[in-house]
Amino acid sequence: MARILVTGGTGHLGRLVVPRLVRTGQEVTVLSRSPHAAGDGVRYLVGDWDTGEGLTAAVRDADVVVHLAGDQLHNETVAHALVRAVREAGTDPHLVNISVVGAEKVPLRSGFDRRVLGYMASKAAAERVLEGSGLRWTNLRATQFHELVLIAARALAKLPVVPVPSGWRSQPVAGDEVAARLVELAVGDPQGRVPDLAGPEVHSFRSMIRDYLDAVGSRRPTMPVRIPGGASRAYAAGANLAPDRAVGKQTWAEFLAAREPSRS
């Protein structure tokens, strides 16, 4: 039985990963910014990525760290904090990191690029931190989750006319399939960068938004919007896609049918 620490364990992906780890019989601890009561076979610790408080103590007893913590733009900073905590603890856990397909392919030449697609470059920077740390690590890149596309669709659908980035495509994958792969990696040996995990189909953003609107019975029109900048051009060119790694099973239509039964 391994002692596994999950950073970001209370987030969207973490809530899928943690129960799977518990079912494998591992000793699971979740690192969170706020206190949580222990339960369902999980222990919780509090840590602050900004100050570093609590991080060293959290990693000290871990055989494996499944690193899911981060946000839109600060993944590099969080990765530095994690590596620093491990070094201060004097341990050598296996770091399992989640990243995004095409992370290194999206240029950030302007502030606008950073606001629109800064997440990609932020993830690439975090990868470099972990890779250069000298620690044992495994890195999985995945395409965008169905669940996150749905969040965006619900937000955009509130507008009278739904703006959709012109030319953008996506290859969405089920978050639970990504979680299952992360658990496999966590209970295995370090492998460095492993093959990407992408969804079974490539769609235009416009068609996915239209699918959502149809599913909820909305007649709102969509309007293509040109997003300027190098980052947007890279996205339109398919930098976020991995057609040769279309190993995910659940399609966007299947996910949408389960989450948004047709009201039309």
Rank of each mutant, 00 (worst) to 15 (best):
A2N: 14
I4W: 02
G9W: 04
L13Q: 06
G25H: 06
T29N: 02
L31M: 10
R33T: 11
S34V: 15
H36C: 09
A38K: 13
G39W: 05
D50M: 14
T56N: 05
V59N: 03
R60P: 00
D61W: 04
A62L: 00
V65D: 04
V66N: 04
A69K: 01
Q72W: 10
H74R: 10
N75W: 00
E76R: 12
H80S: 03
H80R: 15
H80L: 12
R84E: 15
A85K: 08
V86S: 06
V86R: 04
V86N: 04
L95W: 00
V100K: 07
V101S: 11
V101T: 15
V106N: 08
G111W: 09
D113G: 06
D113E: 09
V116D: 01
V116F: 06
S122T: 09
A125I: 01
R128I: 01
R128Q: 13
R128Y: 03
V129C: 06
L130M: 08
S133G: 05
L140V: 09
L140W: 02
A153K: 04
R154H: 02
P163H: 07
P163M: 10
S166Y: 12
G167P: 10
S170D: 11
G175R: 12
V178Q: 10
R181M: 03
G188R: 02
Q191Y: 00
P195F: 03
D196Y: 13
P200S: 05
P200A: 03
E201H: 13
R206I: 06
S207H: 14
D211N: 05
V216P: 10
R219N: 09
R220E: 03
T222P: 00
V225D: 14
P228V: 01
P228D: 02
G229M: 09
A231I: 12
G238I: 07
N240F: 07
P243T: 13
R245I: 04
A246L: 12
G248I: 11
E254T: 12
F255G: 09
L256V: 11
S262H: 15
S264L: 13
